[in-house]
């Protein structure tokens, strides 16, 4: 009996391929089956891995970056344009985010704290990316510690920044 083993020929509906691929666990001699096998093992994706802080920090880097790129950009440009438009236009802009006494209202605090937290997190995570670009910090423990460090430093910096703005002056 020859040892050559043929991969099973399967005809699959295109829609079912993804489902099978995703849940296929390579077993036995078919583990490295030919590309003809629709159920061949593919590179493992998100659902395979146990969630960890490195994953969270990665997606948060994207969310904070794209959040600032949209909401932050509009607010920054609006602020500059309102300032250039004169006292009245600036009062209209500032009135949306402040109370009559001049301090921030709820919307002002949500946007202000949200954007500064996003900025500090994106900044810390970005510095971590630059370090990892040099090839450093890929050991499991170091990588995990670095990911946690971005979260802790961004929260601490945001608290300190707002504490200074509200009580430090």
């Amino acid at each position: 009996m020859p040892l050559a083993i043929k991969a099973p020929q399967r005809r699959l509906h295109p829609g079912t391929c993804g489902l099978i691929r995703r849940h296929y666990r390579p077993r036995g001699p078919y583990a490295l089956a030919s590309p003809r096998n629709a159920a061949r093992p593919l590179s493992p994706h998100l659902s395979i891995w146990k969630p960890g802080i490195h994953m969270t920090v990665s997606i948060v880097h994207r969310i904070t970056g794209d959040g600032m790129a949209t909401v932050g950009t509009i607010l920054l440009v609006w602020w500059l344009a309102a300032l250039a438009g004169g006292a009245e236009s600036y009062a209209r802009f500032a009135g949306l985010f402040t109370t009559a006494s001049g301090s921030l209202n709820i919307l002002g605090y949500i946007l202000g704290v949200g954007l500064t937290l996003s900025l500090f997190q994106h900044m810390a995570s970005g510095i971590r990316h630059l370090v990892m670009d040099t090839g450093a910090g890929y050991e499991l423990k170091t990588n995990r510690r670095g990911a946690w460090l971005t979260v802790i430093s961004s929260v601490v910096l945001t608290v300190l920044y707002w504490a200074y703005l509200v009580w430090g002056k």
Binding site: A91, G102, L119, M123, G126
Partner: peptide
């Protein structure tokens, strides 16, 4: 990467400048 580096300095400058403002009314800003 290059703009990440320049952003780091420029955004830190902006954050510190805004925090150091004596007042936030139209005239001051």
């Amino acid at each position: 990467r290059v703009t990440a580096g320049s952003n780091l300095f420029l955004m830190l400058w902006l954050l510190i400048s805004i925090a150091r403002q004596p007042a936030y009314d139209f005239g001051a800003l």
